[in-house]
Simulated assay, not measured.
Amino acid sequence: MTAKLSAVPGLLQGRIVVPGDERYRLLRSTYTTVAAPAAVLLPASAAEVVAALGYAREQDLPLSVRSGGHGLSGRSSNDGGVVIDLSAMNRVEVVDRAARLVRVEAGARWAQVAQALAPHGLAISSGDHGNVGVGGLATGGGIGWLVRHYGLTADRIRAAEVVLADGSLVRTDADHDPDLLWAVRGAGSGTALW
Results as ranks from 00 to 15, higher is better:
Ser6Gly: 15
Val184Asn: 05
Asp175Ser: 13
Ile16Lys: 04
His129Asn: 15
Ser45Leu: 05
Ser189Thr: 11
Leu63Ser: 12
Leu101Thr: 13
Asp173Cys: 01
Val147Tyr: 14
Ala52Asp: 12
Ala116Gln: 13
Gln112Val: 01
Ala108Arg: 12
Ala52Thr: 12
Gly68Met: 06
Leu86Glu: 10
Thr32Tyr: 12
Val65Ser: 01
Ala154Phe: 07
Val95His: 08
Thr139Gly: 06
Gly135Cys: 08
Leu193Asp: 02
Ala111Val: 06
Tyr150Ile: 02
Leu146Tyr: 03
Ser6Ile: 15
Trp145Val: 05
Val34Ala: 04
Ser6Asn: 07
Ala99Met: 04
Ser73Tyr: 07
Ala138Arg: 01
Val113His: 10
Met89Ile: 03
Arg66Glu: 04
Thr30Phe: 10
Val163Ile: 15
Arg156Asn: 11
Leu86Ile: 05
Leu63Trp: 11
Val132Ile: 01
Val95Tyr: 01
Asp21Pro: 10
His120Ser: 15
Pro178Lys: 07
Val94Gly: 08
Leu53Tyr: 07
Gly135Tyr: 05
Trp194Asn: 14
Leu137Arg: 00
Trp145Arg: 13
Val170Ala: 09
Ala138Leu: 08
Gly127Lys: 08
Gly14Tyr: 03
Tyr150His: 15
Pro119Asp: 08
Gly144Pro: 07
Gly188Arg: 02
His176Phe: 10
Arg148Phe: 04
Gly14Leu: 03
Pro9Trp: 11
Ala56Asn: 06
Gly71Glu: 04
Ile143Cys: 05
Thr30Glu: 14
Leu86Lys: 03
Ser87Cys: 14
Ser29Lys: 03
Lys4Ile: 15
Leu42Lys: 05
Tyr150Leu: 15
Val40Met: 09
Val82Ser: 12
Ala38Lys: 11
Ala39Met: 02
Glu93Lys: 14
Val34Ile: 04
Val147Thr: 14
Val8Trp: 03
Leu41Ser: 05
Arg158Val: 07
Gly190Asp: 02
Asp179Thr: 00
Asn78Met: 05
Tyr24Glu: 10
Asn78His: 00
Ala187Ser: 13
Thr33Glu: 10
Gly190Lys: 05
Gln59His: 02
Arg57Ala: 08
Glu22Leu: 06
Ser67Glu: 01
Gly141Leu: 00
Leu53Gly: 07
Gly151Ile: 04
Ala165Met: 11
Val18Asn: 11
Pro43Cys: 09
Thr2Gly: 04
Tyr24Asn: 13
Asp166Val: 06
Leu193Ala: 03
